[in-house]
Design a protein around this nucleic acid. Structure first.
Lengths: 214, 214
DNA sequence: TGCAGAGTGAACAATCCGTGAAATCGCGCT
DNA sequence: AGCGCGATTTCACGGATTGTTCACTCTGCA
């Protein structure tokens, strides 16, 4: 029930929350769709929190907040030495945890949270320019990537081909063929849509343009 | 006497410590010679800690660790909201404070705090400027070394040639040939890659730039 | 059913990267 | 100061990838 309350608080602050009930699934879930921050209970079934933290640190710099029931100093120091960014001692108030999350994200934002778009089954990382689609990395060409990022940055908003040419393409290179956009959208669909003929994300708005559906 | 013990611990860790006995002198001392990190007691004579923090935040992003005697949540949350990077509740052990200092500096100063980069089969020592590749020391020229360190310090992040020229080369020396970067990357690959044609570490991101894969 | 707009495939054009080699710079040495 | 050598930068070319165009087909709407 603690999880529900905490989740509610975080979602009220505008964060998307994913839960994992033990260390193993936490790591799997992390792989599948890497979050911007991890809140980690030291006492977890299957794999304990410290091990999870060690595993995480081997491959990523994701900010981690430890939840620890023990008030003894060694645990907290150990956590920080292992690379945790902060810890909260149980029992804690949801408000405090939320404050910590904000604080840690504020500190680390320039490197991590920046330029990351996440949707259900589609992760776009503006820093590494990687796109992960249902867990698998898909290779996009520069223009394909730029176009996808532009559309995904304004979900549900419809853009005409002319608008896209102006925004995504070099605006100086005027009067290009709008069908250029069409072709790129098609290639994007081939790469990220499960059924390109019935797009899940890249929708055609007949007579107008395209729209990204989150 | 707490101050002496803490100072001793921090100096043992290699930090230089400057003391100030009240808020006013703290701010003056900060102006005179800005430190890399501030440990701030909330209860100070003359000007209290929160005011000092607010003043500091007006002009700098220096990492701040708060010392607070009160265990009530509002104070801690207030501190974090005001822009503190961490806090320690009194009474605290010097060891814990030292651990916090290390942790905060590690987060905020990845370039100075960690001068050693280690990857699977590739060790980079920023102090001796030695690079060890699959056990063997490889000789790098200064520019080659700087370029490698820069890329390896932000693994997986893509940098354009222009960015690399700006960051690794003298930023004042504008308008250099981007192919300079290309050539240096090539020579780096020749020296550290097992198969330079299929790089393990130095990846080309077509149309964008280069990326270090850990 | 007609028709404008959207999708398809393939050819063509532009761009970018890797390579080799030559030119220039920087710095210690005599 | 002049020399010499390694480091760095520049440049042109070839091949590979990416971007654009175009003719054609298909689809949704009146």
């Amino acid at each position: 029930m603690v999880r529900e309350v905490v989740t509610a608080y975080l979602e009220r602050d505008g964060y998307r929350v994913t839960l994992a009930s033990d260390g193993r699934t936490a790591l799997e879930s992390f792989e599948a769709s890497p979050p911007d921050l991890v809140v980690l209970d030291v006492m977890l079934p299957e794999v304990d929190g410290f091990s999870v933290l060690t595993q995480l640190r081997k491959r990523t710099d994701v900010p981690v907040i430890l939840l620890t029931a023990r008030t003894e100093e060694p645990d907290r120091v150990l956590g920080l030495e292992l690379g945790a960014d902060d810890y909260v001692v149980k029992p804690f108030s949801p408000r405090e945890l939320a404050a910590r999350v904000r604080s840690v994200l504020r500190r680390t934002r320039p490197t991590t949270a920046e330029k990351k778009l996440q949707f259900d089954g589609l992760d776009i990382d503006g820093v590494t320019r990687e796109v992960r689609c249902r867990g698998e990395i898909v290779d996009l060409t520069p223009k394909e990537f730029d176009l996808l990022v532009f559309l995904a940055s304004s979900p549900r908003q419809v853009f005409s081909r002319a608008q896209l040419l102006e925004q995504v393409w070099d605006s100086s290179a005027d009067y290009q063929d709008p069908s250029t956009v069409t072709v790129h959208v098609r290639r994007l669909r081939r790469k990220i849509e499960e059924v390109p003929e019935e797009p899940r994300w890249l929708h055609t708005v007949w007579g107008v343009g395209y729209r990204f559906e989150p």
